[in-house]
Amino acid sequence: MAEPVADRLLDGGADDVERAAEAALRPRRLDEFVGQSTVRDQLSLVLHAALGRGGSPDHVLLSGPPGLGKTTLAMIIAAELGTSLRVTSGPAITHAGDLAAVLSSLEEGEVLFIDEIHRLARPAEELLYMAMEDFRVDVVVGKGPGASAIPLALPPFVAVGATTRAGLLPAPLRDRFGFTGHLDFYDASELEQVLLRSAGLLGTVLEADAAAEIAGRSRGTPRIANRLLRRVRDWAQVRGDGRLDLRAARAALEVYEVDVLGLDRLDRAVLSALCTRFGGGPVGLSTLAVAVGEEPETVETVAEPFLVREGLMGRTPRGRVATPAAWAHLGLTPPA
């Protein structure tokens, strides 16, 4: 799935410095994790009950849009259990042998985090079924009629899967997770808490009105909020007086083309094309993508979900349409 355009534009390619900054802002324990109160409480019960019994918790599946904290929660699970975390991803495991190699190297009680688990290859999925349920894998030796399967016992481990598209997970795999948590978008007040905490970790003071301004433009996503915070800090350092106040926040977000609703250049290009070139629609996805110079998949997976969620665009059997809110946001008058 394509990375959100705000991430790509604001992150400048997510270089090593930026990745290190993101890692430094991650909470380490459940009591430091802001938001997602339902999932946090449920997960706390699962982990502490397992610790009280002296055993391992059930396997955990975390679903939800990108940037809401699935990877962070996986790290927290390992920290709360007092064990290490082994990280891999679905696209990286192309053969069952790749997964068998990872599983066979696990230590007892270790947490295996599989990001984008819905993209696992089918042979690897079938191997994971057995590993999660029976803590063993069958290694096939040889080919043809002479091939044989050698069972390999695995130490008990905890699998944590993360997915942005839970509907693509096959039922047999989904059923092997004892706990499933769905992460929702954050509200503005929760994002303000995230920003104030992050500013403290960055060694700077973020004023309350600036925190509210950044939170309102962060698409309900902590990852975007933290990246916008770092861009505001950059502006304050280079062009301002070093203070992270409302003036710095608004000026910096204007430089990075993030408007008051959190729309970026691509979002506004899609809305503008829909309204000014096609009279508000309906218009097909491919035609709309050509109008803005992007691939249809980019428009569909990067811009469209946020525009639909904000009530600026609608999807109909005949194509995409602009809502009255879209015309109002662009300052345009809809056709009679």
Rank of each mutant, 00 (worst) to 15 (best):
V5H: 13
L9T: 12
G13L: 00
A14Q: 14
V17P: 05
E18Y: 11
E22Y: 09
L25D: 05
L25K: 09
L25W: 13
V34H: 08
V34I: 15
D41W: 04
V46C: 00
L47M: 09
H48Q: 14
A49N: 15
A50D: 09
L51Q: 13
G52D: 04
G52A: 06
G67T: 01
L68H: 04
A74R: 08
I76L: 07
A78T: 08
A79N: 12
L81D: 05
S84T: 14
S89M: 04
T94P: 10
H95M: 14
D98R: 06
L99H: 07
L103R: 09
S105A: 15
E107A: 13
E108N: 11
V111F: 10
D115Q: 01
L120Q: 10
R122C: 01
E125R: 15
E126I: 02
L128K: 10
Y129C: 07
A131K: 07
F135D: 05
R136T: 08
V141Q: 09
G142Q: 08
G144L: 09
A149G: 06
P151A: 02
L152H: 15
L154T: 05
F157Q: 03
A159M: 04
V160D: 12
G161A: 07
T163S: 05
T163Y: 06
T164A: 11
R165Y: 03
L168A: 15
L168K: 13
L169G: 09
A171S: 12
P172V: 00
P172Y: 07
L173D: 06
R174S: 08
R174I: 06
D175C: 07
R176D: 03
H182Y: 14
F185K: 03
F185D: 10
A188P: 07
A188R: 15
E192I: 11
V194A: 00
S198I: 09
L201H: 10
L201N: 00
G203F: 02
T204A: 12
V205F: 12
L206Q: 03
A208C: 00
D209N: 10
A212Q: 14
I214T: 01
I214Y: 06
R219N: 04
T221V: 11
P222E: 06
A225W: 02
N226Y: 04
L229K: 06
R230T: 05
R231A: 07
W235L: 09
A236N: 12
V238L: 15
R239C: 10
G242M: 10
L246Q: 13
A248R: 08
A252K: 11
A252L: 01
E254V: 00
V255K: 02
V255R: 09
V258W: 04
L261P: 00
G262S: 02
D264L: 12
L266N: 03
R268P: 04
A269L: 13
V270I: 09
A273R: 08
L274H: 05
C275I: 04
T276K: 13
T276C: 05
R277S: 12
R277V: 06
G279C: 01
G281V: 12
P282C: 02
V283L: 10
V283T: 08
L285N: 04
G293Q: 03
E295T: 13
P296M: 10
P296W: 08
E297S: 14
T301A: 14
A303L: 02
L307N: 02
L307W: 13
G311W: 07
G314A: 13
G314Y: 09
R315V: 05
P317I: 01
R320T: 02
V321H: 02
T323S: 11
A325E: 11
A326H: 13
W327F: 12
A328I: 04
H329Y: 07
L332D: 04
